[in-house]
Write a protein that binds this DNA or RNA. Structure first.
Length: 207
DNA sequence: GGTGTGATCGTA
DNA sequence: ACGATCACACCA
């Protein structure tokens, strides 16, 4: 990774999730793995905004629970949850303490520690599927529930800016995997247009 | 490219 | 009962 890479400051996260989400595109998610001692990293290429109590698609819609407590905390921390009985997914907590807005990290482009990523994602037949979904990204980077609540500004999992700007024009679509009427109509999915690591769903701005 | 289905279990 | 999912089978 470039020597100029620096962790995003707390203030970066303290804004509306619909603004934070596209700003996270092309930033780098890093996990300093304690076991291997290797920094495993992926460039963020697909995200979704979840808007707290106003958003029927959000885990925070019905208020604070044991599972979603991290979302109700301060910005710049990682909300990790377990779903479908087998998968972990990770979100960046945004806006101010208590608003419970968050950005789901949906896909990434493998950047470093790729040999470790391949070992963890042996079911991926093509490289473009190593991190092309929220649970795949977590599996690739070794992110599990033990990391729920970790501080992204200075923790073992962090998000850094290595100088690559977000796309001048982000791809936008409705969010993936929501039941009809559960916030599925909101255009709050953002992606790097044309990137092969973007998961199922629109990958280009024009069809 | 697309659709359909089983896996597997914590949460509400 | 239902998921902010994945991988595989199958069809096109």
């Amino acid at each position: 990774m470039a020597r100029t890479a620096r962790a995003l400051p707390r203030a970066f996260y303290a804004r509306d999730a619909r603004e934070l989400a596209p700003a996270l595109l092309n930033k780098v998610l890093v996990h300093d793995d304690a076991v291997t001692g290797v920094a495993v990293a992926a460039r963020i290429v697909e995200v979704e905004a979840y808007c707290g109590r106003e958003d029927s698609g959000s885990h925070a819609y019905r208020g604070r629970t044991t599972r979603n407590a991290t979302m109700f905390g301060p910005p710049g921390h990682l909300y990790v949850y377990f779903t479908y009985g087998m998968h972990w997914c990770a979100n960046v907590v945004g806006h101010v303490d208590g608003d419970a807005t968050a950005v789901l990290l949906r896909a990434g482009a493998p950047l470093s520690g790729v040999d470790i990523i391949r070992a963890r994602r042996q079911r991926a037949r093509r490289d473009r599927d190593l991190c092309s979904g929220p649970a795949k990204l977590c599996e690739a980077l070794g992110i599990t529930g033990g990391l729920d609540g970790i501080d992204l500004v200075r923790g073992a999992v962090r998000i850094v800016d290595d100088g690559v700007a977000p796309p001048a024009r982000s791809g936008v679509s409705t969010r993936i995997g929501l039941a009809t009427g559960r916030g599925d109509a909101h255009p709050w999915r953002f992606f790097v247009p044309g990137d092969p690591n973007v998961g199922p769903g629109p990958r280009r701005v024009n069809g």
